[in-house]
Design a protein around this nucleic acid. Structure first.
Lengths: 187, 187
DNA sequence: TTAAAAACCTACTAGTAGGTAGGGTAGGTG
DNA sequence: CACCTACCCTACCTACTAGTAGGTTTTTAA
């Protein structure tokens, strides 16, 4: 079966988003996939391999997803609202952004994983930045520093609010917080 | 010795801020404090006890610290900058806000710990909110929704930016991001 | 049809986690 | 003086972690 590998990645991703990369174990994955623990090692010899591939896969899938939103015909503030909704939907399932979840445990990661993580963040920020470039052009957004810097700030805000709101306030608090920040960036 | 307990809490806090609450172990604490693992159990029978006390201690110490800033004579935007600097200084030592760090692992926490965590967040937000109330009064800050909501958004932003910047960009990125958000909230 | 390659299994290793049992010792109190 | 409590110790337990060895089944391809 080719899709056992995908099932493993799916289960791993779900676990990472819910409980974090350190609390995600091969045992947990084997339980949900319905495969023995040793068999997972056949597909991903070391856990670091799994983490690396998870990061790469998410960079692609979420990158495509973000791009869909960013390339649309909406105004810049509307696009920011749609991007925030992606995070809000994750939160409603008690799930954190994978990059955000792994970032918090970055100190226990291998160097090569950290590099992929860094690249994923930069990739996301680059996509987000196009919205801020558009916003500056159409005068719908106002911010100091560069569009890249603003994109970094906005992405970081979404990651943090997802984390804090999961512990306190849930999607309601998240939604209001996003509203405030987008309003503040709006001209 | 009375301060063994404090030494344990200090070591535990440092570990939680650097590697997260799940990667923090009694073994690690015993190594840095210079005491046997079993002796820590004398002071904190279960790990949950340690975590609970850590949260309560931080709520007091950081609460007092934030209050010092908030009660000062600065303008509201200046106070926000000072609050951001607290997080920036932590980041320069590779350390995350304790509440932020524990929040990411909240799914592996006991219920009572979650309640203390929630209370810590609400406490911090309440302190932060006074700055936004001041800002609205003196017309130095402009935001939609309530001051509490804005404080929640700002705190979440700081938590998230600390996490993301530790993986990508460091204090420079953090500083610029904080600049952008505070500028956006400034009238 | 046969042989190799891929996938999966049982059974195991070594290491670490949190936690416990029970003994030794120092300092204070009746 | 005896006693008690707080503190710290050695030694151990169970549960779980990532990872390995080596055999079996299934799939694929010549």
């Amino acid at each position: 079966m080719k899709d056992t590998r995908i099932k493993i990645l799916d289960a791993a991703q779900d676990l990472v988003q819910r409980v974090g990369v350190n609390a995600m174990s091969y045992k947990h994955i084997s339980d949900t996939v319905g495969i023995r623990k040793a068999s997972i090692h056949h597909h991903f010899p070391k856990k670091e391999n799994l983490v690396d591939e998870l990061l790469k896969r998410c960079q692609l899938s979420y990158g495509a997803y973000y791009n869909d939103i960013v390339r649309g015909s909406d105004s810049a503030p509307e696009k920011l609202r749609k991007l925030a909704t992606v995070f809000e939907n994750g939160l409603s399932n008690q799930k954190l952004c994978l990059v955000g979840s792994i970032s918090t445990d970055s100190s226990t990661l291998q160097e090569h994983s950290c590099r992929i993580l860094e690249q994923s963040i930069q990739n996301t920020v680059t996509i987000f930045a196009t919205v801020f470039i558009q916003g500056k052009k159409e005068c719908s957004l106002s911010f100091t520093e560069t569009a890249e810097d603003a994109a970094f700030a906005f992405f970081s805000f979404l990651v943090g609010t997802q984390i804090v709101a999961r512990s306190c306030g849930g999607t309601e608090f998240f939604h209001k917080a996003a509203q405030i920040i987008i309003d503040a960036l709006e001209k």
